[in-house]
Amino acid sequence: MIYVNAFILGGFICLIGELILDNTKLTPGHITSIFTVLGAFLSFLGIYPKLIEWGGAGATMMISNFGNLLYQGGYEGFHSAEILGFASGLLTKVSAAVTMAIVFAFIFAIFFKPKD
């Protein structure tokens, strides 16, 4: 059942993050950065696509998927555009998420007041 797998995988990734956050002096900024790099590394090892196959949204909704998509973009970029593809292909797959995050954050920042 992919729903149960998603729950287990997503929960497990967040659990690891929380354990690091509580037991070290690292901040959330450190942890999200580490997980992104780790995602790229797991993708390099060929593990991340398998995690997505097994756990679906449990893997794709995590920040580590950002690293995974960057790696996939660079790797597939090379195969479609050779050496230039590393640069031109790297951001293709994360483009949707980054663009929309910027658009939404900007619009909401303009129309809403900060709460303190």
Binding site: I2, Y3, F7, G10, G11, F12, A57, G58
Partner: peptide
């Protein structure tokens, strides 16, 4: 985290 992934799926 699991709940978000479950709903997301």
């Amino acid at each position: 985290g699991g709940g978000i992934s479950f709903v997301g799926q």
